[in-house]
């Protein structure tokens, strides 16, 4: 059964054309390789800190 009040919460305002730049800046462009790289960098930093 559709519950209007709950369903309507799922609707968010649409980004307007003037906000395209913001949208792009906020866009998470990292892929899994970038994440792995970050993790390795973090590990390297931890390692050097211990040494």
């Amino acid at each position: 059964m559709i519950r209007f009040e709950e369903e309507i919460k799922k609707f968010k305002p649409c980004a307007e054309l003037s906000e395209v730049e913001d949208v792009i800046y906020k866009y998470e462009t990292k892929d899994i390789i970038d994440v792995l790289n970050e993790m390795i960098e973090e590990l390297k930093e931890e390692k050097s800190a211990h040494e």
Partner: peptide
């Protein structure tokens, strides 16, 4: 109909 999102994807694509 999600034009702004579409434009964002193409701009990023163009950048990358």
């Amino acid at each position: 109909g999600e034009t702004v999102t579409a434009l964002s994807e193409w701009v990023l694509s163009q950048n990358l």
